[in-house]
């Protein structure tokens, strides 16, 4: 599924990385715990998280994870958007709860890592 389709399913607002919306990604990992996000090895899933601070962006940078959806109506700061942009990430904001966002993507056929 393209990142654009994911953004549409989640009615998410794309904050940066709009030039990458045609790329495909079929795996999702959802967590508010950044240490969990750092356990994914070579996978590069779409990250769904309700954690909304600079550590969200930094952790994803360390883990080579470059598509991030902030759920639960969290709003990224200017600093987060700038950093994400600099790292070439796609950063989105979604008003849905984690449960709803995950449910929609799972029902649409996206896969879990485990």
């Amino acid at each position: 599924m393209t990142i654009k389709q994911i953004s549409e399913l989640l009615e998410a607002k794309v904050l940066c990385g709009a030039d990458r919306l045609d790329e495909e990604n079929d795996i999702v990992f959802a967590s508010d715990l950044m240490s969990d996000v750092l356990t994914l090895g070579d996978y590069n899933p779409v990250i769904l998280t309700g954690l909304c601070n600079m550590q969200t962006i930094r952790t994803c940078e360390m883990g080579n994870l470059d598509v991030i959806v902030l759920v639960r109506k969290k709003k990224a700061t200017e600093e987060m958007i700038e950093e994400a942009e600099e790292e070439g990430m796609v950063l989105m904001e979604c008003d849905y709860s984690m449960f709803k966002a995950c449910g929609i993507l799972y029902a649409a056929g996206l896969k879990a890592i485990y």
């Binding site: 715990l33 240490s35 969990d36 356990t39 998280t49 954690l51 601070n53 550590q55 952790t59």
Partner: peptide
């Protein structure tokens, strides 16, 4: 609040 502190730091390092 920063998304850490769940007791996974050292185990993650070890892995």
């Amino acid at each position: 609040d920063m998304g850490f502190g769940a007791g996974m730091g050292l185990p993650n390092i070890k892995k």
